[in-house]
Simulated assay, not measured.
Amino acid sequence: MEAEQPERFVDATSSTATFSVLTQWLKKRRWFLLMVVLPTMLAALYYGLIAADVYISESRFVIKSPDQKRSQTSTLANLVQTTGLSGGHEQTSEVLTYVQSRDALKALTEKIDLRDKFSSPQADALSRFPRPFSDGSFESLFKYYGKRVDARIDQENGTATIKVEAFTPQDAYIINRELLGLSENLVNQLNMRSQSKGIVEAQKQVELATQRARSARVALAQYRNAQALIDPAKQAGGVLAIADTMIAQRSALQAQLDTMQRLTPGNPSIPALRSRINAISAQIASQDNRVVGNGGGIASKLGGYENLLVEQEFATESLNAANSALVQARAEAQRQQFYLERVVNPNMPDTPLLPKRMLSILIVFAAALCLYFIAWMFMIGILEHAPED
């Protein structure tokens, strides 16, 4: 019994010494343990056991115009066309801006239950929506949406890329598919907007020219009815032709009369012939009055008719020009029409790409170690410059 008591005393003393050494070691390295080991252990616990798998669905597209299908003679033009940057680069930027906008989020939530997909049971508490210290408002959803949806232009090949992160393959695929559909609708709206700008203005010009041509025709018809004339120029020509015929007849009769009076002055036909000549002269004077008579002559009406006729012809030419401009505007709108061409359809991912567990743990460890060394160097600097008491 007396031999066992010293052995127990030695064991207790050894255990106490070991615990004291361990305590001193932990105390000496407490800041390293708190700043490096603890964060790394927490990261390993989260990424190793808690963090949910994240699936990524990707789609690619380019926006082109019909002109891009035509052959290009320039090598540079061919190069630009093959990179997808010609013609539709500005529209591509507009579409990608829209995909990351509140309008796209609002339209997306009307098609699918986006909140339910982002708060999937497969997600962990730190990844699902709403996140800790966040509410379920639309602005919070928009911030979360911006972290789960990425839309950008690949500068290497010129294609636009949409990437969607979700906690199930089906959700990632559905969200990407709907976003691509919304992008196509936006391109169609942009086409309609560009078409309406030129076509509406050309249509207005056609309507104005049509109204002017109609007014000119109505004015000309009213003038004809009021003056009892169809075509003053043609009618005056007809009257003058009749007068010329009568003048020829009168000349012939006058010649016959002159011959009778010279050869047979007492011929009883002379009075009758003279009467015919006087009658024809009266008819010629009447026809002349129809053409150039004061006030009611055709010549006095010809100026107003010609003014109206010129206005009608000019209005008709303006209408033809406006119709040609409308046809050209429609052709130009068709030429400038853009369309979204899918290069890669949304895929159904079969393997989670996020989180990168080992890489994330190493990043946390490296960041914590850097912060620890920065703090350690800072404290060494303070101690070196501290006054010695």
Rank of each mutant, 00 (worst) to 15 (best):
A233C: 05
Q211W: 00
G266L: 12
A252G: 09
A236H: 05
A219L: 10
D231S: 12
R217S: 12
A241D: 12
Q205G: 02
D244N: 15
I242N: 15
D171N: 08
R193E: 12
G238T: 12
Y173T: 07
A172E: 03
N188M: 13
A236I: 08
R250T: 11
K163Q: 11
N185Y: 09
A202S: 06
L229V: 15
L179A: 03
I247D: 10
N267Y: 04
D244G: 11
L190R: 11
S215P: 00
D258K: 13
G181A: 07
V200M: 04
L180Q: 10
P265S: 06
A226F: 04
T264W: 07
T259L: 13
G238Y: 12
R250H: 06
I199D: 04
D258Q: 14
Q211I: 00
A243T: 11
T210F: 01
Q189S: 14
E201M: 06
L208P: 00
L208F: 01
P169V: 03
D171E: 06
I174G: 01
A233K: 11
N185G: 10
L253F: 06
D258L: 12
D171V: 05
S275I: 12
R262C: 02
T210Y: 01
S269C: 06
E184F: 05
S275F: 12
F167S: 00
A248H: 08
R274L: 11
Q203G: 10
T168Y: 01
A160E: 02
E201R: 04
V164H: 02
L273Y: 08
Q235A: 14
N185M: 08
Q211C: 00
R193H: 13
I162Q: 03
A172L: 03
A209P: 01
A248P: 11
D258N: 13
L273S: 15
A252Q: 13
N267D: 15
S215A: 10
G181S: 10
G181C: 02
A172M: 03
R214K: 06
G181N: 10
A243C: 05
L253C: 07
T210G: 03
R274F: 07
E207H: 04
L257D: 14
K163M: 10
Q249W: 05
G198T: 09
P232D: 04
S196K: 13
S275T: 15
K197Y: 14
Q195E: 15
N176F: 01
P271D: 10
L220S: 06
S194C: 07
